[in-house]
Nucleic acid binder design. Structure first.
Lengths: 148, 148
DNA sequence: ATCCCAACGTTGGGGAGACCAACGATAACG
DNA sequence: CGTTATCGTTGGTCTCCCCAACGTTGGGAT
């Protein structure tokens, strides 16, 4: 008897279900990324750079939902491994311009495979239609609680 | 410009969406409960006791997905506020029997209102059908990653 | 032009959540 | 009997998320 069924009050509670399903989601992705020395924040930042091009650290944080202060360590890590370059912005000397490098692009593609593999494990009990519907519903929630 | 749209790679990623939507869910519930000095773990344990009756701390943990070691503090809190009573089990002296008190039952009902109010805020952008579908899909994920 | 406010990167810290290892005590089973 | 397992408890770690403050710089207001 490894685990017992949860109370009905919790099993019908969206916030509880979100937390309980975010737990294995986070675990699967983190564990996969850790095998190559990466973290979830790394993936988010590389994805934002790949899609939107060079950006300041603050802008990157807004894009990917990461706090300014946490972004520092992420850019430090990515710089140390050569995935991005950090340069002072000539037009605004408050800012750094973070740019993805060719090595960073290759790294991102490797992380894509890992992350997508984790999604397969996470969503194993769901059909293709159900997965699309889940993404759609969660997207609505995220949108609603983002900008206001 | 408070927040910008996230990269498409992330917006289509179930694990990322789960984390992003679990964040406001957790925040709404925790903030509401904090107004009455309660925590999410308190609610889970009281709900389990209400539904399944008196149980040992370890059994409570299995029911509600809380680690044994974290359960100690929860039962301490609930005992201090008179919501539960903790007594040694006469038939198995390794165990404590945790029982919900009448005051605990009233407390649970108050927490129900708070928690349900948070669900309304959380799921505001979803229709009734969509909420039911979300609960169903998340339930499948939680079930799949619980026992097996 | 000067003053005030906003934004930037950075540092430091805090709190919650989830997990893990170990211990002594007790129970169950070979 | 001896071994293995479970219980409550203590203590610790790690990640994530958030906040406050600082010096620096830019932009806007009067």
């Amino acid at each position: 008897m490894e685990s017992a069924s949860a109370p009905a009050r919790l099993r019908a509670l969206p916030s509880w279900l979100l937390n309980q399903s975010a737990r294995p989601a986070q675990h699967l992705v983190s564990e996969g990324l850790r095998a190559v020395g990466a973290q979830r924040y790394h993936y988010s930042v590389l994805a934002a750079l790949d899609e939107f091009g060079p950006a300041s650290q603050a802008a990157l944080g807004r894009r990917s939902g990461i706090d300014r202060s946490d972004m520092v360590a992420v850019v430090n890590d990515l710089t140390a491994q050569g995935s991005v370059s950090r340069q002072p912005d000539a037009t605004d000397r408050r800012r750094n311009v973070v740019t993805i490098t060719p090595a960073g692009h290759r790294h991102l593609q490797a992380l894509d495979d890992i992350v997508n593999g984790a999604q397969r494990d996470l969503l194993a009990p769901l059909s293709t239609d159900e997965r699309a519907e889940l993404v759609r519903l969660l997207g609505k929630i995220v949108d609603h609680h983002a900008g206001g």
